[in-house]
Design a protein around this nucleic acid. Structure first.
Lengths: 144, 144
DNA sequence: GGCGTGCTTGACGTTGACGTAAGCGGAATG
DNA sequence: CATTCCGCTTACGTCAACGTCAAGCACGCC
């Protein structure tokens, strides 16, 4: 099992450009070692990249992602207050995510409905009835 | 029950600025009527705004949102080919959302774990043990 | 008629998240 | 030894999604 990674390996694994990884470093999100000039990424760096990219996919800004990463870095110098503050921040992120989950589930059911309507129309009469689906779906949303 | 809305009503309801709604109009995402100069938003416009904002919250770009809205607008002039194409697009969006849902669920369980660790540390010995949580969580991710 | 208030249309500014181009430093390969 | 790959840095460019003025009309009201 490999303990360190080159920048190329990571760009291929995560499908991002080297520019992106260097940018994240400039922003202080990761801090790979150097052998001379060359960056050497550790497993920890790799783990952080995983978090960053997943955060990105679910719509977090880099600033928010930085906050989360910082929370994981609360170490020895942190008193109880610090720890409690971290806990609060974690919960905030949690709530945001759960809200997003609901949004996604709503969107999913809506898309399933739309697909079902399309399938129905195709199955029945080749061409779908003119205004069958667009008012139906949109006004259901409007009703809420 | 009211059938039309002013721009102010909608900005308050959705907590966005008027600039944002006008911007969406410039981008062709909504098309309110006019009484003279003034915009009059219909229930359909309102429904589309709901979709736009929900899309935004789950991380879609306006371009992607536009695509989805366009799909709902496939009407009378659409043949079977058009309809099938729409169906395909719907399914693409569906897959993207389901992928995001997994990302979110992963993040949620991770956050819950982190919170549990914090709580544990607080409950046991006031100050959390120095390097208890940060390597634990980050290396679990790295292990995958 | 003057005043404020709300809505309008430009046009330019801003922020985040990178892309792109130019040029240099090693190292490996023919 | 010259070339060809990476990789590095510095600096400017870009695109999306609005924000922020500036300036103007239409109105209701005192």
């Amino acid at each position: 099992m490999q303990r360190t990674f080159t920048i190329r390996q990571l760009t291929k694994e995560f499908d991002v450009t080297a520019r992106t990884l260097r940018f994240y470093e400039d922003e202080g999100l990761i801090a790979p070692e150097r052998r001379g000039q060359t960056r050497i990424y550790s497993g920890r760096d790799r783990a952080r990249i995983t978090l960053i990219l997943r955060g990105r996919r679910v719509g977090f800004s880099l600033a928010e992602i930085r906050e989360i990463l910082d929370l994981y870095d609360v170490h020895h110098d942190g008193g109880v207050m610090q720890t409690l503050h971290a806990r609060k921040k974690f919960e905030e992120q949690l709530h945001k995510l759960e809200r997003q989950k609901i949004d996604i589930e709503d969107s999913v059911t809506e898309l399933r409905r739309a697909i079902a309507i399309v399938d129905d129309a195709i199955a029945k009469g080749e061409l779908p009835p003119p205004a069958a689906m667009q008012p139906a779906t949109l006004h259901r949303v409007a009703a809420e």
